[in-house]
Design a protein around this nucleic acid. Structure first.
Length: 246
DNA sequence: ATGTCATCTTAGAGATGA
């Protein structure tokens, strides 16, 4: 079974890349972030659960192995940043964690509270069930998950509080499925559009696949080629091949 | 280390966000 997560930075703008990518990779389940639309396009072969209200945010789950128990509500947070559903044997969540903007911006405590609510939400599930929480977390878990930690002094994405919030998700009973890098020795998943950052491989690992141990990972990698070429997203997909025991 | 990209407003460049 193949799972993928991809922040597409507008599904409308990305459709010319998204459809051929679906054909090529043939994932069974896709978690999409930053759809930036109120209405997700119809995708032949897939059922879609989408939470989107227009200009910003927006998350979706595409599945060709069943899509039930759809939940679009993240308690206390009206923005469309979370959708979950049962996809065949696996409970899947697509998350788009708030950016935080800067340490003195109200968006930063909002980000921390949003992550805390996500952690509380896990308590409705069992750590023994097959469950995958994936998406754009806007946190680099270690200093090696950014191209140069010195460039992140007094920045969001790397603070102890953000990293602790990620650790608390994982300590609930999830495994951080680290993908094979697309280039070099660090599995970056995001590169700013500006300043030739992608070309210089000055990236960040901020997209994650977090899975319970009941989800047996066979392979995981950053689909770096999809960040290349004409009209890419600023994020690369992460693709994970898994099996779920009987 | 901000050089791009996407969206919306409301008609064409600016604001916003990432």
């Amino acid at each position: 079974m193949r799972l993928a997560t991809w922040n597409v930075n507008s599904i409308g703008a990305r459709l010319p890349r998204f459809l051929p990518w679906l054909e090529e990779m043939s994932p069974d389940v896709v978690a999409v972030q930053e759809t930036k639309t109120a209405s997700f396009p119809v995708i032949p072969g897939y059922e879609v659960a989408h939470a989107g209200d227009g200009r910003w945010n927006g998350v979706a789950i595409l599945s060709r192995i069943g899509l039930t128990d759809v939940d679009l509500v993240h308690e206390g947070h009206p923005e469309t940043r979370l959708v979950s559903a049962q996809c065949g044997p696996i409970h899947v969540t697509s998350a788009y964690v708030p950016n935080g903007r800067s340490l003195d911006d109200p968006h930063y405590p909002y980000k921390l509270e949003w992550l805390a609510e996500l952690r509380r939400r896990l308590d409705r599930f069992s750590g023994a069930q097959p469950l995958v929480l994936m998406g754009d977390f806007n946190v680099a878990r270690t200093d090696d998950d950014v191209w140069d930690i010195k460039a992140f002094r007094d920045s969001t994405h790397v603070t102890p509080a953000e990293r602790q919030a990620m650790d608390e998700l994982i300590d609930w009973g999830l495994v951080d499925v680290v993908p094979r890098p697309g280039k070099g020795d660090r599995p970056f998943t995001y590169w700013d559009y500006r300043a030739g950052m992608f070309h210089k491989d000055l990236g960040m690992r901020i997209d994650y696949v977090l899975a319970t141990p009941a989800v047996v990972v066979k392979d995981a990698w950053v689909d770096r080629p999809t960040r290349k070429g004409t009209g890419p997203s600023d994020h690369a997909p992460v693709i994970v091949d898994v099996e779920v025991g009987p």
